[in-house]
Structure formats: C-alpha cells, structure tokens
Design a protein around this nucleic acid. Structure first.
Lengths: 247, 247
DNA sequence: CGACCGATTGACGACCATCAAAGGTAGTGG
DNA sequence: CCACTACCTTTGATGGTCGTCAATCGGTCG
C-alpha cells in the first residue's frame, strides 16, 4: 500500500476539478499559487478554536480531521480529510476559527497565504467560484453527516462513512484497487459517528462477518461494494462529484 | 406576539450585517437587488433534492427548515431558518440541490435570481465575500449541530437548540423581550435533534419543570437564560455574530 | 359538533454507553 | 534479539438513555 504522491499544487488542482471542471487557464493560474509544505506527526493540532490565521492549510499527504470538544470533554469529529482538501478554507472570510484541525496520521501540510489567494482571485476572477464551491461541498458533507448521525443506526452509519471515504479517495486518484490506506483508529471512527469505541469495534465485526469489508492494520478492503452502499443507504449526490468519479 | 416586519431587502441586509459590518455603499447596492416575494403555507416544500434552480430564496417572514430523508424514511432537520436567511444560497455555485427546504409556519419567501446576484457582485465585488461568508456561517452551524447531536444528551441538545434560535432571532431584531414566536412543533424539534417526538416531549417537560423555559402555543419564553446556556453548553462563537448581538 | 393535529402519558424493550480487563502489534532501547 | 512500553483492538457484564407502540387528552377549525 503506497499512497500515490503529487506535488502540492497538483493534488489541490486534482481535488478542485473532481468537483467541477477547470479550464487549462485556471489550472495554470492555480499552479502559480505559492504553497509551503511542512511535515506533521500523528495527533498534532494544526489549527485550534480561536485562532485567527493569515493562511489556509492544504492536506497534501496523510489524513487529518476536524473536531470540536463539548464542555463535557467529548470529542466530535466532523470531517475526515483526504489529500487535496483545504480544511480551513473558511478562514479566508471568517476571522475566527471555530474548529480544531488535527492530523490523524503522519501528514504533509501545505500553507497557503490568504493574501496570495486573494491576489490570485483578483487576477483570475473565475477562480472565486472554484474556491467558494469547495466550501459549499464541505457544507453539504456536514449536512449528510447530520443525517447519518441523527437518523441512522450504528451499522448504517459506519457503512456510510466508509463509502464516503472510498469515493473521496477515488476522486483524487488515491484508490485504484479495493484496498486502501486507512490509518484511522476505531476510536476516531467512533468519534466521527457519535458512538463509543467499544460499540464501533462490535459493529465493524458485523461488517466483516457479513463479508462487506475486511481490515488490516492501517488498511481496509472493500469486499462487497454494492452491499456496503446498501447498508449505508449511500447516495453520492451530496459529494457533488463529477460523473466519472461516481461508481 | 407580533413579529416585526421588514421589507425583503431590509431583512436581508439586517441579517448580512449581523455577521459582518457593511458599508453604506454596500447596503445601497444590496437594496437594488430585485426580490419577488410570495406567500407560502405551512408544511410546503419550497426546494427539493434534485432541483436545479436559477434563483435563491430568502426567508422574509415565518420559519422554514432544511431537511433530508434517509432511505428508511426518517427525517433529519439540519437547520431552522429565521427571517433574513437565504437557505439555498449554495445553489449559486452548486448546480444540483441536495436538500429539501420546507416551510414550518406560514411564510413569506423572496425569490432572487442567480443572474441578478452575479450581476450585482460584478458591479460591487465587495459583495462577494458578504454572500460567501453567509454560506460559511451556515456551514459552521452545521458543524455545531454535529457536535450537538453526536455528543450531547437529549436535555442539553434541546437547550442548545433553543439558545441558538434565540440568538439568531435577536441578531435580526425579532426578539426584544424573553418571549418569542415559536411555531415549531415538538415533532420538528425532535427531527432537528435526532430524537423521537415522545422523548422530546419528556425533555421539554424537564426544562419547564426546572424553570428554564415555558411554552405556550406557538410561543416560548426564556425564564432563566444563564441556566439554559449552561444546560446547553452554549458558546455562541460558532454563530460568528457581531459582538453587540451576543448576550 | 365532529375531525384533525399536536401534546401528553404509560409500558416495554432495544440499542448503545459504561466500566473493566485482557489480548495483539509496533516501536524502543538495552 | 528480547524485554518493555504504548497504543489499539477485542471481549464480557451491566445498566441507562432513548425508541417503539398505543392510547388519551386538549385545542382549533370548518
């Protein structure tokens, strides 16, 4: 299991055009965006509630997540990022960050200055909707997670989460076969679906017992995609992917 | 309980500037936006999954909500709108609607053509971040709801939801006293918090028994705001309101 | 006055949380 | 190379929160 690697600008463009076609002119413009990349260890906070950053961060390699803590100390993960995502793109126009972003595997992060984005969008106004759309798709995913956590039983919740991850990884070309890198612990999956690690473990066992998936350390294999989609009531419309990316 | 009324453009501007200050020039520009208003009965779908609208809708009077249905037929409400909200602003840049929007009280809706928005933003580019920010705040609210539904017990969930509604109504000047119009049924509150109407009823009784709120038909009174905030673990940062609006 | 909708109540059970402990696996250092 | 440690996964037992089903009550409207 080797993750396919791209340059920072490549992976960003790849992600952006998985949601909407870009002209070659737009891609050239995006290639000019300065991105400074940094390596991050597992379980490091990258952005914190209350920050007022002057830059965005692009996930280049690895997995990260958005989370918030309740006052009671419970953690809700609201998104799991795959390479190409820009988790705090919102900070372009909201002054104060209201979430935490943390790595959940070793990561490579690219920092993009707000000023650089603004300058680029001034020169190439066609890029504004491109970035805007990115934040809109994020919001759409939050909504689907609300449906998932609010209305589905644990079994369906996990199946749905896995389906989403698979499609988003495929969209940026990081899955070819049915096996993919998945360095997300059961505790993290539990926090992402609003359940406890113990119960997550039990439901994953059910998914394996019924032959829908199999798990190795740091990887997962989809054994029965149709049944997994059915179990998760999965309809990819909300991801707003280009047709070719949707299986 | 009379709701204070504004013209369509007034309420829109009022809402926009509750999140970020607008210059008088920007307000003048926004006043030029053509808005065609329509009356809607209770429980009518305004927008449906799969629609490809060429307009946005602005809520002028009344309450509406965003919801999705699971294949099992369960409904998750993901947002409750107050006047000034533009629930499908996302359709400006996402071609296909992935949610349903429905009235939950008699409403007045204003239709705004996408083309009019685009033209206005071309003439007044300063307005682009204004609308963009609006969609970013919506996303922030979805995230907080994820935390709410995923990690808090029923009692705190409802308290949180009520706190949010109060602040958002205050932000557009629709609450002066502690009593406000609240034509949301317990079944709808239940769907918004991922619980059943029966349990919603019981938890509301607890809130009343402890003197935090009282409810009349179509209205609600906050009896103990500090305790309600505490019960809901409520921190208004995520609403990104201007300071003056946060109590 | 009857129909309808929403609020309320009761009994029962399931899903999932909690607590506690043991088993595996990877990484570290002697 | 092996012991030691840390982290993750797995298992068991128990209980609580909340869902389900059903019926009743109360207010509104035609």
């Amino acid at each position: 299991m080797r993750t396919i690697l791209y340059t920072p600008n490549e992976i960003m463009i790849r992600k952006l055009e998985s949601n909407f076609p870009l002209t070659s002119e737009e891609k050239q413009a995006l290639n000019k965006l300065p991105i400074q990349s940094v390596d991050i260890k597992t379980n490091q906070d990258i952005v914190r509630v209350g920050d007022q950053p002057t830059q965005c961060c692009l996930l280049i390699e690895g997995f990260s997540c958005v989370y918030k803590l309740s006052l009671a100390g419970k953690r809700q993960i609201m998104a799991i990022h795959v390479p190409g995502d820009i988790p705090d793109l919102q900070s372009l126009h909201l002054n104060v960050i209201d979430i935490n972003i943390a790595s959940i595997s070793p990561c490579k992060i690219g920092y993009i200055l707000h000023d650089d984005v603004h300058r680029l969008c001034e020169r190439f106004p066609r890029l504004i909707p491109v970035f805007w759309r990115e934040t809109l798709v994020d919001a759409s995913i939050f909504r689907e997670w609300l449906l998932n956590i609010g209305q589905r039983v644990a079994y369906a919740r996990i199946a749905h989460l896995i389906c989403e991850l698979v499609l988003r990884l495929k969209a940026v070309g990081l899955i070819k076969e049915n096996t993919f890198e998945m360095p997300v612990t059961q505790a993290e999956l539990a926090d992402a679906t609003g359940m406890t690690p113990v119960h997550m473990n039990r439901v994953l066992q059910m998914l394996r017992a019924e032959g829908l998936i199999s798990t190795g350390r740091n990887e997962m294999t989809i054994l029965d995609w149709p049944k997994l989609k059915e179990a998760g009531e999965f309809d990819p419309l909300y991801l707003h992917l280009e047709k070719k990316a949707v299986s």
